[in-house]
């Protein structure tokens, strides 16, 4: 009986080990890439007063005059014991990233809480009424919203709901001093935009997964037994489609955390995407590294969770012979 839990446990351990390896590779790639970019933090932060001698003094101060492999290993030694060091602007990296990461998670969670149930629900409806007007209508809308770049959707929403109708504010720059209600009010437009972007993808995949399963012989069997169509979908098809649905949801969640920098810029939302872009622009390597690791870990963990869900939901994978 012990062997039953082994496949899952083994997989988790294996995936985590691979995940750590990926993180290491990511950190090397990012560090090399940022080091090869022209300019450095000293010239960025001094702006128009960056005379050569000041830049040199700055570089010496930050250790930027040392060769990059040496700087990398210094950083790695710190990171291994959980010390991500100080940003070049002399604040701990955790202080730079902390509140921003929290904001991003808040936005992602809010969007997912609304978008995921709607997506699965609409996807089921589409599969049930496949090729009927409602399916065609929803498909057309979702395909359109997939095809449009997210900043376009953002600007259209902003124009109608903020500039013309004054329902929501255009600025989503939430700050600690605002109360919960105002923060939610300000987050409405980014949430709405991200919903449009992710909902379509998740709904299309739910629909496709369900339709794929509906062509199996056992569904036909259920039909021949005289089961109502909705019951067939919910009881027979949906449980078997959980695997693919979970993986597309995971990808979208990962995207909501790591890929929404454009929406952040448009609505001036203080999230972590902008932190990373800012840090790259200023060549603030410790912050860039920390962001990259967070993004990579986020993809690795969410994909792991998705795989776990599909294994647990599939008895054939859960109890391999």
């Amino acid at each position: 009986m012990v062997s039953n839990s082994h496949p899952i446990l083994g997989m988790i351990l294996q995936r985590l080990a691979l995940g750590l390896l990926s993180l290491l590779i990511v950190s090397i790639v990012i560090f090399t890439a940022v080091s090869m970019l022209p300019g450095d933090f000293a010239s960025a932060v001094l702006g128009r007063s960056a005379t050569p001698e000041t830049v040199a003094a700055f570089q010496q101060n930050l250790g930027l005059d040392q060769p990059w492999p040496r700087r990398y290993f210094q950083w790695l030694a710190g990171a291994l014991i959980g010390d991500f060091g100080n940003s070049f602007s002399n604040r701990p990296v955790s202080a730079v990233i902390g509140s921003r990461l929290f904001n991003t998670l808040k936005l992602a969670a809010l969007t997912a809480m609304i978008a995921v149930p709607i997506a699965v629900f609409l996807g089921t409806i589409c599969a049930r009424y496949r090729n009927k007007p409602i399916d065609r209508f929803l498909s057309a809308i979702t395909l359109a919203s997939i095809s449009l770049p997210e900043f376009f959707i953002a600007y259209v929403l902003m124009l109608f709901l903020a500039t013309k109708l004054h329902i929501f504010p255009t600025l989503s720059s939430i700050r600690g001093s605002m109360d919960m209600l105002e923060q939610l009010h300000r987050m409405a437009l980014p949430v709405l935009t991200l919903m449009f972007v992710t909902l379509a993808h998740m709904m299309r995949n739910t629909r496709a997964a369900l339709i794929g399963i509906m062509s199996h012989p056992y569904i036909e069997m259920a039909r021949l037994k005289g089961e109502p169509e909705m019951r067939i979908i919910l009881r027979h098809a949906l449980p078997n489609a959980i695997g693919p649905i979970a993986s597309v949801i995971a990808i979208n969640l990962a995207y909501l955390i790591a890929g929404v920098v454009v929406v952040e810029v448009v609505f001036v939302y203080p999230g972590i995407g902008q932190t990373m872009v800012d840090a790259v622009r200023n060549r603030d390597v410790p912050v860039v590294q920390a962001c990259a690791l967070i993004f990579a870990a986020n993809y690795i963990i969410l994909n792991l969770v998705a795989d776990l869900v599909s294994i647990v939901s599939n008895p054939r994978l859960l109890h391999p012979r």
């Binding site: 933090f41 960025a44 932060v45 001094l46 702006g47 128009r48 007063s49 940003s87 070049f88 602007s89 002399n90 604040r91 730079v96 902008q274 932190t275 800012d278 840090a279 622009r281 200023n282 603030d284 912050v287």
Partner: peptide
């Protein structure tokens, strides 16, 4: 503005 802004009067690039 920039996230790397500090109160240090030696910098202030913008």
């Amino acid at each position: 503005a920039s996230q790397q802004d500090t109160l240090d009067p030696g910098t202030w690039p913008t």
